[in-house]
Amino acid sequence: MARTPEELEVMLEDAFVLHDHGALAQLFEPEAVLQPAGCGPAHGRDEIERLVAELWSHQHRYVADPRTVLQLRETALMLSRAAVSVVRRTPEGTWRYAIVYLNP
């Protein structure tokens, strides 16, 4: 699992490139929210997996490009060209997405 918010971004890109459903789901908190531009939000890992599978079927890609990372303790805000994300550190010390707005 990701040890930094930036590493989490790279892992998301890898999951998109490989179309790896299992890896993708583990990057998100159990009750996370993902909303691509122009779509309704997906709540929870199962809905996120289904929504991302639909994005993959339309050839949507994700390229990790964290330009700004603002961190306060166990929460970070990441801004990139393709997304705005809120990530949180788990008690085990790994990072997971809580909220992601994608603008592919």
Rank of each mutant, 00 (worst) to 15 (best):
E13C: 15
F16V: 13
G44S: 00
E54F: 11
L102A: 01
E9N: 02
F16E: 02
C39Y: 14
R73S: 11
T90M: 01
L27G: 01
V87H: 04
L77Q: 11
S57I: 15
R89Y: 03
E92K: 10
Y97N: 02
V100I: 12
A82W: 14
V17I: 11
Y101V: 12
V86H: 14
V52D: 00
E13Q: 14
V10M: 09
V69A: 01
A2G: 03
L79Y: 06
M11V: 10
L70R: 08
R96N: 02
H19P: 07
E92I: 10
V63I: 06
T94Q: 04
F28P: 00
H21C: 08
M78T: 13
R45I: 02
T68I: 15
V87K: 01
E9C: 08
W95E: 00
D65S: 06
F28I: 02
C39K: 11
P104E: 09
L70S: 06
V69T: 03
V84R: 10
I48F: 00
V86C: 12
V17N: 10
D46L: 03
L24C: 06
F16Q: 11
P91T: 12
P104H: 11
E92P: 06
L34I: 07
R73L: 11
E47L: 03
V10P: 02
A15G: 09
S80P: 08
M78R: 15
A82L: 13
V86R: 12
A82I: 12
Q59D: 01
L102P: 00
L8I: 13
A37K: 09
H60G: 02
E49V: 15
E74G: 12
R73I: 15
G44F: 00
A2T: 12
V84S: 09
P41K: 04
A98Q: 14
R45C: 02
T94F: 07
V84D: 00
H43I: 08
V10T: 11
R67F: 07
T94G: 00
A64I: 07
Q35W: 15
Q35C: 10
Q26I: 05
L72R: 09
H21G: 03
Y97Q: 04
E74I: 13
R96Q: 10
R50N: 02
G40Y: 06
L8T: 05
V10W: 13
Y101R: 07
I48N: 00
Y97T: 04
R45W: 05
E54Q: 05
V10S: 03
H43F: 07
